[in-house]
Design a protein around this nucleic acid. Sequence first.
DNA 1: CAGTGGTCTAGACCACTGG
DNA 2: CAGTGGTCTAGACCACTGC
Lengths: 270, 270
Amino acid sequence: MNTASPSISESTAPASAETGSGGSAVFNSTPAFSPLYQQIKVLILQSLQAGEWKPSAAIPSEMDLAARFKVSQGTVRKAIDELAAENLLVRRQGKGTFVATHAEQQVQYRFLRLFPDSGDLQSEGPAQRQIIDCKRVRAPADIARALAIRLGESVLQVRRVLSFAATPTILEDLWLPGAPFKGLTAERLRAYHGPMYALFETEFGVRMVRAEEKIRALLPDAEQCALLAINSQTPLLSVERTAFTYNDAPMELRRGLYRTDTHYYRNALN
Amino acid sequence: MNTASPSISESTAPASAETGSGGSAVFNSTPAFSPLYQQIKVLILQSLQAGEWKPSAAIPSEMDLAARFKVSQGTVRKAIDELAAENLLVRRQGKGTFVATHAEQQVQYRFLRLFPDSGDLQSEGPAQRQIIDCKRVRAPADIARALAIRLGESVLQVRRVLSFAATPTILEDLWLPGAPFKGLTAERLRAYHGPMYALFETEFGVRMVRAEEKIRALLPDAEQCALLAINSQTPLLSVERTAFTYNDAPMELRRGLYRTDTHYYRNALN
DNA sequence: CAGTGGTCTAGACCACTGG
DNA sequence: CAGTGGTCTAGACCACTGC
């Protein structure tokens, strides 16, 4: 089952490893050349996606993977390097390479860019979470588009408030596709202690890999004022986040309102 | 002038290249181990900082650098890889490796994260720039701290408005340390066509390498309303940026106010 | 001490660019 | 065609972790 295509398949040698070095037969001609390590990267990605290695577990050693894919250690190394750079894997010298996870992370919220003005991250302690609501609804047009599902399909809608130092600071509405998150309830959200994305991993097997945010300034309406205990003249940061799993599949739309009189949104430009 | 220190110095061999591979004598014991490629990286960084290679110019080939530093091509390769990942260098296969620059860049403004709601980047055309003011002042406390200079030192203060599709959208105040930017005037700013950071490179030899932004929402005061032609009930994004040259030296503080009714601030989380 | 990731080398060959 | 970056290999050794 080995075609003339440039792709390699697991437990299939690159057809030639003859005399010395550089003899890999994987090279293909002009159109759509893809280096070996990229193909390895895809294979590892598929194993991750298929759940062959669970979050926080170790993947096989570089030597093992090299043997499995019939390539040199350096080649799998380069593949792993890129996956580590994308925060899908975590390397730990002397121990192994591990599947990244939103739990057991140094920073509690990997995607949250809001920091207290008093640079002291820990002084205000962990966020207090309050689930306001969690219900099933039919996806309106904008939600359906963002989640790449059909209009009217069932989605979960969650509303919650995050407080820092007993001050309501973030009001979030978030939408999740119904199918992958079947069984998610307000009770389970309240019962879980830790980042919501960690719950998604352990309970629903959905790993959020990257996200995009669109940020605006706006004035809150009456309901938002009440939930955040502010007046209508307090401008807020509107943060619309789309979070993606593997394969750039959108799995969450989140609309957050952030108070920025005691906190600020931090961004690094490179 | 070669000490027992682990650092290598230009045109000084690593003391041993004896029999085969791995014989580099650069390895040092327990405290503060620094791999060879990191040391090479620092050397290249110093050459960049010293202006040995100008922005947009090619640096020596990997083979040349390997010979110069007396290491293998793979080692300088890894050093260059990291510098390219940090956007200090740009690799172009078949041509060479070039010093990154803010001019001649695909996106006009590398650090500007504001995009039109109608995803069409080019439909609104290039920004119209209007220099409102450019004057020397004595640094107040907050500016001095941000620029790591002494209180009361001379700084340049610039105010400008950026308009998209004839709509004033961004009001910016920016502060630059007086010494490196001696001779910068409103006239020179108006005369230059292209990103301001490109002018800084060509005219003052100051390359902005990275930046940090603190984002908040606020309501404009009367003066800001007038300059942006908005009313006082239009909430704005407040974007405070500190831009850094090499060595993490801060070289600019910029306070921007962005209209977000027709544009949004985009951020990617990884 | 064995096992893992991390560094370094030397050499071969491929893909791309420009004269 | 020569020169540049890009890929791949094989092998050696170093640094770190945990038993």
